[in-house]
Nucleic acid binder design. Structure first.
Lengths: 335, 335
DNA sequence: AACTACTACTAGAGCGCTCTAGTCACGAGC
DNA sequence: GCTCGTGACTAGAGCGCTCTAGTAGTAGTT
């Protein structure tokens, strides 16, 4: 349980200088194959691992990207995973800092700065545009999943308007005409998804029909109760996200309506819950891999090219077909 | 966008030595109040923040605790949050390393070791006891939420046996006699929960009745189908966790059975989903705050007292009453 | 006046690396 | 035989801090 071995220890055991050990461990040119294996053997013997902090101290570039994420958002978890792979491929390391009710976002950001991250990647941040701009003055700041306009801040997000359009077009192709949208109130993305729905309906010559909703299962369930009570003449519903859709489905399934026979339902996010066999929700999937890759790419150009301009990348979503959508009953009779 | 200011810059601006700046920023004795404010003012002017890595390099103690967690487990998210507060209170910093399908556990651990964390906190690790023991040779290793016996490894977990007992006793007190347990197959905690159920039933002079299950919503839903098909003569069900219980409820509610009138259901974990109004699941809650505090406390004694013995702390869970449990119909008639 | 005691400060080494500027040996080229 | 180039290696400074040892300067004691 004594302190971990240092480069000095390895050098002594292998009978070489510290610099040579450094060369070997960095895979840099300047050492013969024979010594290379000898040094590595010595290192292995001692269980040596280079001290990451010391290594970084000397270099100007830390190759460290700081990421803040919400510990409670499953979608952030998915993103973090793909960010790891994307960062690794580009030769960067990731430092994670969690945001939680008891740990504010600026707190999370500060701790990342203390570790001298070269760039900040913020997942769905709540910080004000001005706060974001202030941060962007000292290092690149990339926001994922929120449509913000802040000077010097790069944004990578899903085309939510297009996502809603996908959902509506899918329902139209099945023969639906009366399509309701249950929105996500004031939450990030809600406005775009609502707009996309409205535009797609208008484009098809139909009138949009919007019911207020929310983002949780409970909101979806409440919306279902209102829906059952009002029983509007619609054959399909698109919802703000999968969580709301799940709550909606749960309540609808307890009524006399059968899904998808009497009502088609489309969610948004393609969260793990949507894929579960007993839910099997048709939904709009965000392309997390593309989001992550674009983010790392932006970070990289920002860090290498000092006069790169602010980027705003929009990733197209895709539709995932499952079993909550089908042609409307009337269409089935007529067709 | 130039490199961040160093202690040297602050010292020059304030007209003092680097050492004095260090003293001021560490809040160490040895500086007059006048210089203290002067130095801090200079630091503020330059936007100075001490470089965390450099600071740690010189010290033997890094006061850094490494945490591995599963990015997809909501319960881990809750734990990480409370760990942050507990660590901060004890003067420690947390380094997070995510475990995901594409990023194995040993990988996550290695990256923490590269940052010279003083101790490793592993949330529900899948590593073998021998791998854990090997890790524990170079620094303290504390496992949360998994009952493992590995030399030198500390364990902090919830009393799952007691948790199951709580669930059963609650149902007994409502008047249930025929109680089924749907287990969690081979997943961590399943064995203890099953044993606890069995013991509580035997203690009440009743014969245990166990149906195989799993840990996901889909598993719960499947179990419900089997249940409806077999229609065993039971009035209450306890499940491995909330996710399975949710799937179970979802499917049961589509049948003619009404909950809790015809069947009482108890989950496990008190996850956020259990609290949602349309689910409102009676469940066994793990005390995350206690788990986190105990973990940090153990880390601290391990790091300060070289001959501390291996700790195994078991935290009692509590029962959260919601609306999926009620007296059995027969009891209602007889009582 | 000489001693200690204390406060306020500084010089400089050291943490574990990387990197520049060497040294040294050896063979090729003229 | 001399330079020159090259591959293999080393010395030592430096990254941004902390910490030990030490220096002034002031005040209190006898």
């Amino acid at each position: 349980m004594d302190r971990p071995p240092t480069m000095e220890d390895v050098a002594r055991l292998a009978g070489v200088s510290r610099a040579l050990v450094s060369i070997v461990y960095r895979d840099a040119p300047g050492a013969s194959d024979a010594t290379r294996t000898r040094v590595l053997a010595a290192g292995n013997d001692l269980g040596y691992r280079p001290d990451h902090r010391a290594r970084l101290l000397g270099r100007t570039r830390t190759r460290l990207l700081g990421v803040t994420f919400d510990v409670r958002a499953p979608f952030h978890g998915d993103l973090v995973e793909v960010l790891y792979s994307a960062a690794e491929a580009a030769g960067y390391d990731l430092a994670l800092s969690a945001v939680a009710p008891s740990r504010g976002e600026s707190r999370a950001v500060q701790s990342l700065l203390d570790y001298r991250c070269e760039a900040l990647i913020l997942l769905g941040p709540q910080l004000s545009p001005s706060a974001l701009s202030a941060l962007a003055e000292s290092q690149p700041v990339i926001v994922i999943g929120r449509k913000v306009r802040a000077a010097g801040v790069d944004v990578v997000r899903t085309d939510d308007k297009g996502g809603s359009r996908l959902a509506v077009e899918h329902l139209l192709s099945l023969g639906h005409r009366a399509i309701l949208h249950i929105d996500g109130a004031k939450f990030p993305g809600s406005a775009e998804r609502r707009t996309g729905y409205r535009a797609a309906m208008r484009h098809a010559g139909l009138s949009p029909f919007i019911q207020p909703g929310g983002r949780t299962e409970a909101d979806g369930s409440d919306a279902a109760k209102t829906f059952l009570n009002d029983s509007p003449p619609v054959t399909a519903v698109t919802l703000f996200n999968d969580r709301a859709a799940t709550g909606f489905l749960d309540t609808i399934r307890q009524s006399s309506l059968e899904i998808p026979r009497d009502l088609s339902v489309v969610g948004y996010d393609n969260s793990t819950i949507a894929a579960l066999s007993h839910i099997s929700l048709t939904t709009v999937a965000q392309n997390t891999t593309a989001l992550a890759n674009q983010t790392i790419a932006i970070a990289q150009t920002r860090l290498t090219d000092p006069n790169a301009t602010t980027a705003a990348v929009v990733i197209p979503p895709t539709l995932v077909l499952r079993s909550t959508t089908a042609p409307p009953r009337s269409a089935g009779c007529t067709g």
